[in-house]
């Protein structure tokens, strides 16, 4: 597991106290996976700095974890918190959709 857990550090605490618990499922180092991870990191740092945790799970190494979150598509980003669970599939290159999917945009931060 490429456990790249990044604890909230330097950023200010979120105004409403929400934290984002994110999990990114990938399968090896494919182009799509790498792109997705890079995109995600960028968005998180930009919009959720200090308010998120991120697990990156490589299903090639941990195939048994695919069933739990009902993963079919790769890559899939799962937003566990805040509820409800949302799944964002693809390499996350469409920033607008990712932000909407993560409920960042609707909060009117930017």
């Amino acid at each position: 597991m490429m456990d790249m857990r990044e604890a909230p550090t330097d950023a200010a605490t979120p105004p409403d106290g929400d934290t984002w618990e994110l999990r990114l499922y990938v399968a090896g180092h494919t182009t799509k996976s790498v792109t997705a991870l890079a995109n995600l990191k960028r968005y998180c740092e930009q919009y959720l700095a200090g308010r998120y945790t991120l697990d990156v799970i490589d299903l090639l190494q941990h195939p048994q974890l695919a069933e739990g979150d009902q993963i079919l598509a790769i890559p899939t980003l799962v937003r566990k918190v805040p509820e409800p669970i949302r799944k964002i599939i693809g390499d996350l290159s469409n920033e607008e959709k990712v932000l909407v999917g993560l409920d960042i945009r609707t909060r009117g931060d930017h």
């Binding site: 799509k32 695919a66 598509a73 949302r86 799944k87 599939i89 693809g90 390499d91």
Partner: peptide, 24 residues
Amino acid sequence: HIDRSEIEETGEYDLEGLFIRLGY
């Protein structure tokens, strides 16, 4: 379980997850 309302499409993907699940 597939629920379209939970899924947002944001770029290129494939169904490798299905293959991995089945393979496992």
